[in-house]
């Protein structure tokens, strides 16, 4: 009797997992999700995790190599590298978002409109794309920052000015593909407005590659923000930012390698998190039954 009870209780319940949930249980997504959520935590509550004040000098601990007291070592002014890397999350996650979000919004709107309406606007847009992608991305951004002056806000403006074109190009291609489907024609026969057809019918079916691209782009934005910080065009010292930290460490690379290496690892890990999540989201967001 008791045996039977336990047998019944232990019979595995054949509960079928929704395929979308299944896609989310893959190790790639789980790792990416863990990295991203901890990055966000570190960005929002740096004071809770950083063992020291990131800007406090300690002249008794200059260029100390990694130890229990300073796991990432200290820099040339005795500041704790771990604390500085943690405080830098705030800046770099902000860069990941602001350097991509406005570009995406503008790009999606412009790309959808030129794809749907075509005509002269589409031709002009095509030429603009050609001109923009002819320039190396970083060179163009540096040129804009040089005009506007260094600093984070100007960097966001510069990146948005250049990057929206890439989002618009991607959106345009996706919308054009969707427009060949009969449901777009059906919307027109139903007498729907072009705004409704674009934003309620076509765009929701074009989001999958956009979100994936956005995730990858956030990783690249962190890299770009760090590059500009390194070159002195983005975040300004003493603000802790990974690129700035690497730049500060470069003079001491032979004696205090941890000063540059640790923020470098932070960049790699965070970028990896974005990419892993982006990849898995692409599978999850794809509408089922659609090829």
């Amino acid at each position: 009797m008791t045996q039977l009870d336990t047998l019944q209780a232990s019979t595995p319940q054949k509960k079928k997992l929704h395929p979308r949930v299944k896609a989310l249980l893959r190790p790639g997504f789980l790792l990416g999700f863990f990295i991203l959520s901890s990055s966000i935590l570190l960005a929002v509550f740096p004071w809770a995790f950083a063992p020291y004040d990131p800007n406090a000098f300690d002249f008794n601990a200059i260029q100390k190599s990694p130890s229990w007291a300073h796991p990432f070592g200290t820099d040339n002014l005795g500041r704790d590298t771990l604390s500085r890397v943690i405080w830098a999350y705030q800046v770099d996650m902000q860069i990941a978002f602001f350097a991509t979000f406005f570009a995406m919004v503008i790009g999606v709107v412009v790309g959808s409109l030129v794809a749907y309406h075509g005509g002269i606007a589409d031709v002009l847009f095509g030429r603009l794309v050609d001109v923009t992608i002819t320039f190396p991305f970083l060179v163009l951004v540096i040129a804009v920052v040089a005009v506007l002056g260094p600093g984070l806000t100007n960097m966001y403006v510069a990146v948005t000015l250049v990057q929206w074109v890439y989002y618009a190009r991607l959106t345009r291609a996706e919308i054009m593909t969707q427009m060949t489907s009969d449901y777009a024609s059906a919307g027109r026969v139903m007498g729907y407005s072009s705004t409704r057809i674009i934003f309620r019918h076509l765009l929701p079916n074009a989001t999958t590659p956009l979100i994936t691209y956005w995730m990858t782009d956030m990783a690249l934005a962190i890299l770009l923000g760090s590059s500009l910080g390194y070159l002195g065009l983005g975040a300004q010292p003493p603000q802790a930012e990974w690129g700035v930290l690497i730049a500060e460490g470069r003079n001491f690379i032979t004696t205090a390698w941890w000063m540059s290496l640790m923020p470098g690892i932070a960049i790699v890990v965070t970028g990896l998190g974005f990419s892993l999540v982006g990849d898995s989201l692409a599978d999850v967001l794809r509408p089922r039954g659609a090829s």
């Binding site: 059906a186 026969v189 007498g191």
Partner: peptide, 21 residues
């Protein structure tokens, strides 16, 4: 719009004539 309300159309491909979402 009124014309289109009175004259409706149905399409050939059952797989693309409905919005998948």
């Amino acid at each position: 719009r009124e014309y289109n309300r009175k004259v409706q159309m149905m399409f050939q491909d059952p797989y693309s004539s409905l919005n998948p979402r």
